Simulated assay, not measured.
Amino acid sequence: MLFHLSIEADDPKRVAEVLAEIWGGKALPFPPVGVGSWMAFHGADNGTMIEVYPRGTMLTETGADAVGTIGEKRRNNATHFAMSTDLAAERIYAIAEREGWNAKYCKRGGKFGVIEIWIDGCQMIEVLTAEMQREYLDCVTVENWTRMLKAGAPQPLAA
């Protein structure tokens, strides 16, 4: 089980509130990393959360706990995640539109659907409705992935 992950955003409070809305959860401040950091708790209150730091936050190893410092404010990065929702796809599109975030349906590898959302125009997340979650869980298994690799399915990265 993945307990939490962290991303950066232009407005961490707003992003945490929207993610909590999608999850049926609650957004709360997260001061241990730095002023302006927030977290979105899943509605099941099982400890699952997404930490949202101000854009440019870098975690630095110290002799004690890691600390967050502000550095270069990059716009795009490789970090993304897929999250479940109990909401209908139409509601997810409406939330994304309200926030001014691009959202579209994608069928990953022709196997399972996701709603791809671009927070702040640069942070990609994938939201999976109940139907999409079933597709994902039927497809993404160690056995299926191993079979795909044996078939020579890996694709090169874009230049």
Rank of each mutant, 00 (worst) to 15 (best):
A103F: 06
E17Q: 14
E116I: 03
H42Q: 05
G68Q: 07
T60I: 04
M132E: 14
G68C: 09
I7R: 00
H80N: 12
N76L: 12
L137P: 02
A153K: 13
G43W: 03
A89P: 15
A40H: 00
M83P: 00
P156V: 03
W23E: 03
V127G: 01
A78E: 04
G68F: 05
I125D: 01
A44Q: 06
E143N: 11
T146K: 14
T60M: 01
E21P: 00
M148I: 04
V140E: 11
P29T: 08
I92N: 13
G71N: 02
Y136E: 11
D120S: 10
M124F: 01
G71S: 06
Y53G: 02
A159D: 12
C106D: 15
L128H: 09
A78I: 05
A66V: 06
P12T: 12
H4L: 05
K111A: 13
A89K: 15
A27I: 05
F81D: 04
F112K: 07
E21Y: 03
T48L: 10
V52G: 02
W118R: 12
A94G: 09
A16K: 03
G68R: 04
W118M: 15
D11Q: 14
S84E: 04
A66T: 07
Y136S: 12
S37I: 03
Q155L: 14
D138P: 03
T85W: 09
A158G: 13
A40R: 00
K111R: 13
G43A: 03
I7T: 09
K73H: 10
I95H: 06
R74E: 15
L2W: 14
T79G: 02
L87M: 14
N144S: 11
L137A: 14
E21N: 09
E97G: 10
T141W: 04
E21S: 10
K13H: 08
A9S: 12
M132W: 10
K107T: 12
M83H: 06
T79Q: 08
I70Q: 14
R147D: 09
G24N: 05
M58S: 03
L87R: 11
A64C: 09
G113E: 12
R75P: 07
G121T: 08
E99K: 13
E116A: 09
G109Y: 14
F81K: 01
F81N: 01
I50E: 00
Q155F: 07
K111W: 08
G43L: 02
H42G: 00
W23P: 01
V35C: 00
S37D: 08
S37N: 10
I95Q: 08
S84F: 01
W23L: 13
A66C: 04
K26R: 11
M148W: 11
M83V: 13
F41K: 01
F112E: 05
M132Q: 15
D138W: 04
I115F: 07
Q133T: 04
N77C: 04
A159Y: 08
A20E: 11
G121L: 07
E99I: 11
A94N: 09
A66R: 05
K150H: 11
N46K: 02
M1L: 14
G36S: 07
P31M: 01
F30S: 03
D120E: 12
A96G: 08
E143F: 08
G68I: 06
E51P: 00
G56K: 06
L128Q: 13
A27V: 05
R14W: 00
Q123N: 04
V52P: 02
N77A: 09
T69P: 05
V140L: 13
S37W: 04
E17C: 07
K107N: 14
T48A: 10
I119C: 13
R147S: 09
R134M: 13
K150I: 00
